[in-house]
Write a protein that binds this DNA or RNA. Structure first.
Lengths: 135, 135
DNA sequence: GGTTGACATGGAGTTGACTCCAGATTCTAA
DNA sequence: TTAGAATCTGGAGTCAACTCCATGTCAACC
């Protein structure tokens, strides 16, 4: 179990941010050591790290919250779904599918930008190379 | 030439955002029709669209501004560099290289997230398929 | 010739995501 | 036992990036 300070260091999030995420309900309140101090588990830490990955794909905190609530199983795809009814499964599927589509669009845009950037870099590098071999 | 309203529709940016970008110096002031009304060219529109692509790669407006100023050649890689001195070329090269590295990291993170999401989707779809074939 | 609609300006307000602060509590080391 | 460090709470402040507002100009249509 980690203190809030250790958790901040492990995840790269600030102490304030950890408390903020808890306040807005993005993370569940962690256990309290001695009934007072927040105490984060290994799993909590992994979860916080995966949150940052999701964030990088451009989701807002509110979207992430909705995403995680709807698909509780994000952490564990083998979450007991058999008890869920068909509609719930379909809803989760469509949320994931939409999110995937957005990520794919972003992926394609990134790829094209990277390609352009590489070409420009090449032009510069050639220029520098030519300069270097001048008399 | 397009009015600010038409430009907003074409680019997906709001009228206020177009004026805001101009105010902070991210875009150059467009020609004024009848000395009063902003009038955007095809090229202005293309530029605005490419700004949005850059933005999606996670650059802030300030970074984008610096990026575009430093490497004026972003729009045209064959910009007359011969007149520039070696240091300027090196500076542009390193800005582009750093930006490329960031994009590559983001690209890898996205790929891994997409992979995970696809796996989860697969699990759900199988569940739905099984349900469908039940007695 | 009056109303409508698009656009202008300067400045204020909003939103999301933190970040900081004051004052209190508790444990730890000198 | 007192000073320091880490944490607590509730609430205020900040920053980027818009977004809205009041008021004014102009051209066009009825």
């Amino acid at each position: 179990m980690y203190s809030i300070g250790q958790t901040a260091k492990l995840t790269g999030l600030s102490i304030d941010t950890l408390r903020y995420y808890e306040k807005i309900g993005l993370t569940k309140p962690p256990v309290r050591a001695k009934g007072r101090l927040r105490s984060y588990s290994e799993e909590d830490v992994r979860f916080l790290i995966s949150l940052q990955c999701l964030k990088k794909t451009g989701l807002t905190l509110v979207e992430m919250k909705a995403f995680l609530m709807e698909g509780q199983c994000y952490a564990n795809p083998y979450f007991p779904l058999s008890a869920e009814d068909r509609e719930t499964i379909e809803s989760r599927t469509s949320i994931l599918a939409e999110h995937l589509a957005r990520m794919e669009a972003q992926y394609a845009a990134l790829a094209s930008l990277m390609e352009q950037t590489k070409e420009k870099l090449e032009v510069y590098r050639e220029l520098l190379a030519k300069e270097a071999t001048k008399p």
